[in-house]
Design a protein around this nucleic acid. Structure first.
Length: 909
RNA sequence: GCCCGCUUAGCUCAGUGGUAGAGCACACGCUUCACACGCGUGGGGUCGUAGGUUCAAGUCCUACAGCGGGCACCA
């Protein structure tokens, strides 16, 4: 068999995914066990315009580990993929293309044609990310792929809207909203970002009517003064007490405006008097409502001044108007001062344009009502369970405690159109379809609301709508809801996570997911957030090309919920790990004649040799650790356990020990039947451990494990989990059973004995290195142990020890005097010593120094331990088991010191 | 202003009250018949600072510092 020396990830990555998908391995239907428990994950649907970034790769790696693990465990497993129509982003992408290719705007082609073009674009270019997910190895069920604008999901959206409208949770009316002057649409509070910005605070004086007195107000936005309809002060502020109820003359405009008292105003800030612009500031809007103030709109949807701002300003951009207003104040001597001031500015989350708060008639959802059930659930039962719990449970809870109305409508064309129709008189009919609306209105002359819904409105339904809701009897809904876990980034806990909980509780009476796993954030190597604008993003596809998908997945999975700076070294080390796996398998396969997976471990474990009992014990412990770690979302622990089991235990020791038995006959030599049988058995054992290891690794490294597994002797359908055995699919590791730990095979004694052997070999290697003995030179070693059973144990493994430490001979004795003076020595656990006679090679002084150093180290340790043991408080209060443990250690260290002292004596003679 | 997180080896990060860890990097030695993407050996840490609780603190508590994040306010 030809097996290259270096693993080529590309080859494996291109070999298996298409078959898995074609044969239906990802679909839950592959599971024939009627009693199988369900495990389901709804993917956070990436934007249809999007392409894969590190954040996706991170989330997908974790979801795929969970999915593949549970599938191998026999769960009826569904990971449901799909994409989001991403209203504004997609609309802009297509508008840009229209402009570039035909020099037209969406208004030139008209709404229907534009929507047709968007669909066309989606068919042609959309979903690039779904191809990239196949590259990642994501085991999603493509047969259930959904898009938020699918007919079925759109029906769910209308159902959601109509029901909430009927219950009074959704209403239409004027309100203060965030308006993006560039995108020309309303936005919810979650779609805007606050940024701090260096600006100026302008102190403006407003004359008191019928007096020389002036009231000074401070503002960062002087242009809005044209729309002022009051000045407010704190009711307890003596400075202004006598002014409350009196009238001011608004400069430039000449309007008479009242001075009102309101608790909202803080005495300490600015001058303690606030100009009130109800039409252009959310706080002023609320204040204006309380005091029944007029709303004067002086800025329009394009952020230009309106006619109401006055002829002098009409048509000016808001920033031009600002300069003009300030000039006018200066001219009239009403500008008191201007100071530098840093303040927060609200920007459109998408295009970064400064938001203009406007009063506008929009559709709103009373979130506080919908949020009640999720709030109770998290408070009383801590559901869903957040991982990590801290800080996310609290963040989520605080959010639900402070819900406000959600601005639903968007002045866009691409999206779910609001299911509301108006008759000629302007009466509104909200209905599931136009026919129902007509029936309700009693006329055909209806016009549908031109606006569409916030993209997150359909996202809020994702877990239920993708499973079939509003068809309550949908089989998928029955089987897979609630979903098992949601894996996502922290920045959409409010925007999305909380809202899915709201709809799930409302329409299904159940949480949308049992657990919520929040991933960490990946930064660049300088600790900066990766972003398109900064251009510091690392493309996961490039990393796949360079190091392979499996290696990248290991890095991502082990990051889990930790914020991490990206570091290629880490991927490189896992690339090396993949190569290690490849070569371990290569060794097994080159020596696999006569071997069979699953054989070789016949009979009672007590009859097996030490290293067999040991590796089986280690394997079972690892299986136990890895399963517990995955189920507890501690992915780094799982990866760590797998890495060290495979590399340290299996490769460094088990394979090395097995070589003697596995390499077999020299060419041409005729083996006896018994020898052939034991050779095959030994080879089977190595291959069996390898096969189990590959299964354990598969959820993390799907490609290399499948590639190697299929090459192992004796793999086939009978190794698949019983739930999949009857399925019409080719044998595949992804449907094999995930190894379960068998407590009966965990053998602490074997592990301790093996550890002693490992220590002996390590001490001998250390001596070789420290004394500069050439690798080719053989040495002799003597183990001195009073304990006979210890001598027997080393004796039983002496062949292995000799080979790994490159010894000419290994002798056991209880008599120290048998060892020549000119020996290098080391202490071992259990009161044993090892000596290497090296006549002529020993520099006595150097050797004494080496041992003295070691003794000093041990003495320091003994001091520490004895200090603790001589503390009566410790003896009295520490658990007896701890005290005993420490006594043991003191004894062991004491013994080592004694032995080291004797060695020094021997060297001094 | 309120809340939260982080601070451990040169770097990136694990660490569950009881002997401080990994990978990479570093030093030395190796074409040992799976693997130089490898093998062997070694050096490197008063766990941010100061207190406290405890027989015992990297781990729990308090304060402080630095870095990062969220929420509110910002006229």
């Amino acid at each position: 068999m030809e097996i290259p020396k270096t693993y080529d990830p590309k080859q494996a990555e291109e070999s298996h995914y298409a078959r898995w998908e074609r044969e239906g391995c990802f679909a839950p239907e592959v599971n024939a066990d009627a009693d199988a428990p369900a495990y389901s994950i709804a993917i956070p649907p990436p934007n249809v315009t999007g392409s894969l970034h590190m954040g996706h790769a991170l989330q997908h790696s974790i979801m795929d580990v969970l999915t593949r693990y549970h599938r191998m465990r026999g769960f009826r497993t569904l990971w449901l993929p799909g994409t989001d129509h991403a209203g504004i982003s997609t609309q802009i992408v297509v508008e840009r293309q229209l402009k570039k290719e035909e020099n037209q705007t969406r208004h030139d082609v008209g709404r229907d044609e534009f929507i047709r073009r968007v669909w066309e674009w989606k068919e042609q270019y959309g979903g690039e990310i779904t191809r990239q997910m196949r590259r990642e190895g994501a085991s999603v069920d493509w047969s259930r792929e959904r898009f938020t604008m699918d007919e079925h999901l759109s029906r769910a959206v209308r159902e959601f809207f109509v029901r909430c409208y009927e219950e009074g949770l959704i209403y239409r009316g004027p309100g203060m909203i965030n308006w993006c002057p560039k995108d020309q649409t309303a936005l919810s509070d979650l779609e805007v970002d606050k940024e701090s910005q260096a600006g100026k605070l302008y102190y403006l004086q407003y004359p008191l009517k019928g007096s020389d007195r002036r009231v000074t107000v401070a503002t960062t936005r002087p242009e809005t003064m044209l729309g002022d309809t009051a000045v407010a002060v704190n009711p307890n502020d003596e400075r202004y007490a006598e002014l409350v109820g009196r009238t001011l003359i608004l400069p430039i405009v000449g309007r008479e405006i009242p001075v009102v008292a309101d608790e909202f105003v803080e005495r300490e800030f600015g001058t303690g008097a606030v100009k009130v612009t109800p039409a252009h500031d959310p706080n002023d809007y609320a204040l204006g409502k309380r005091h029944d103030l007029a709303q004067v709109q002086v800025i329009d949807q394009h952020a230009r001044m309106t006619r109401e701002a006055g002829a002098e300003f009409e048509g000016l951009d808001r920033y031009e108007a600002r300069e003009r207003v300030v000039e006018k104040f200066e001219e009239s001597g009403l500008l008191e001062k201007v100071v530098d001031y840093e303040f927060a500015i609200t920007k459109c989350g998408r295009c970064r344009t400064v938001i203009e708060p406007l009063i506008s008639t929009q559709w709103f959802l009373k979130q506080s009502e919908l949020g009640r059930a999720p709030l109770e659930l998290i408070r009383e039962r801590h559901e869903p369970r957040f991982v990590p719990e801290n800080p996310y449970e609290k963040v989520y809870t605080n959010w639900l405690e402070n819900l406000y109305d959600w601005t639903l409508s968007r002045q866009l064309w691409w999206g779910h159109r609001i299911p509301a129709w108006y008759d000629e008189k302007g009466n509104v009919y909200v209905a599931r379809n136009e026919e129902d609306a007509r029936r309700a209105a009693g006329t055909d002359k209806l016009e549908q609301d031109p606006d569409v819904l916030d993209t997150w409105f359909s996202s809020a339904l994702w877990p239920i709508s993708t499973l079939g809701w509003p068809d309550e009897d949908s089989a998928d809904l029955q089987t897979f809801y609630p979903t098992s876990v949601l894996v996502t980034a922290r920045d959409i806990i409010f925007l999305w996570v909380s809202r899915m909980m709201m709809t799930g509780m409302k329409f299904r009476g159940e949480k949308a997911f049992d657990d919520v796993f929040i991933t960490g954030t990946i930064f660049d190597k300088h600790g900066q957030r990766m972003s398109k604008m900064k251009g510091n993003g690392i493309n996961p596809l490039d990393v796949f090309d360079k190091y392979g998908v499996d290696a990248t997945r290991l890095v991502l999975a082990s990051m889990g919920s930790t914020d991490t700076r990206w570091n290629d070294n880490q991927v490189e080390s896992y690339r090396n790990f993949a190569n290690k796996i490849w070569n371990a398998a290569r060794f097994c396969l080159l020596n696999s004649e006569g071997a069979q997976v699953g054989k070789g471990f016949e009979g009672e474990p007590a009859t097996w040799s030490l290293h067999d009992r040991w590796i089986v014990s280690r394997l079972n412990k690892t299986a136990r650790e890895v399963s517990a770690a995955i189920e507890g979302y501690q992915f780094h622990e799982a990866v760590y356990a797998l890495y060290h089991f495979f590399w340290d235990d299996f490769c460094d020791w088990y394979i090395e020990f097995s070589k003697e038995e596995v390499l077999g006959a020299v060419a041409g030599e005729q083996l006896s039947d018994a020898a052939t049988e034991s050779l095959s058995a030994a080879r089977s054992r190595v291959v069996t451990i390898l096969e189990q290891s590959l299964r354990l690794l598969h959820p993390f490294m799907p490609f290399i494990t499948e590639e190697l597994w299929l090459r192992l002797p004796g793999v086939g359908a009978d190794l698949m989990h019983r739930a999949y055995r009857s399925a019409d699919v080719s044998p595949t590791i992804m449907l094999a059973e995930y190894p379960r730990a068998d407590a009966a095979l965990i053998d602490e004694q074997a592990e301790a004995e093996m550890q002693a052997v490992v220590e002996l070999v390590s001490r001998l290697r250390n001596i070789r290195n420290e004394l500069g003995i050439k690798p080719g030179e053989s040495i002799n070693a003597v183990v001195i142990a009073d304990d006979e059973s210890l001598r027997d144990k080393f004796g039983a493994s002496s062949g292995y020890i000799m080979r790994l430490a490159r010894l000419e001979s290994l002798r056991m004795t209880s008599d120290r005097n048998e060892v020549p003076r000119a020996s290098a020595r080391a202490v071992l656990a259990g009161g044993a010593e090892v000596a290497v006679p090296l006549e002529g090679l020993i520099d006595f002084e150097q050797e004494r120094a080496r041992i003295t150093r070691e003794r000093e180290k041990q003495e320091k340790e003994l001091q520490k331990v004895e200090a603790q043991l001589s503390n009566p408080q410790f003896i009295a209060r520490a658990p007896a088991e701890k005290v005993e443990e420490l006594r043991q250690r003191a004894a062991d260290v004491g013994q080592r010191i004694k032995a080291l002292g004797e060695m020094l004596e021997a060297l001094s003679e």
